[in-house]
Amino acid sequence: MKILNCPINGPRPLQEFHFGGELRPNPLDRKDGADADWADYVFNRDGEPGVKREWWYHIPSGTWFIAERDNVTDQFQRTYLYGAEQTDG
């Protein structure tokens, strides 16, 4: 069982977490574009292999955070709280 390092709770088994999908732009910044662009924002996700930025949630403590994961090697590279990209999680 993979270990994921929660920025608040430390390394925990993956079972304690919920995967929240890829990190996406703020809808407030996208809502004024064309219909087709909005549909793309709502329905499409990036399937390219590489380092993904993902939302993860530690269920017992209710903590949302961002994890960067290389989805080719399935290795988590780093984790940090939303908005704290400048410091290491």
């Binding site: 939302w55 939303y82 908005g83």
Partner: peptide
């Protein structure tokens, strides 16, 4: 509740 927590972060 979980989604509210996330939106609160996104909307700041």
């Amino acid at each position: 509740y979980r989604e509210m927590q996330r939106w609160a972060l996104i909307f700041g």
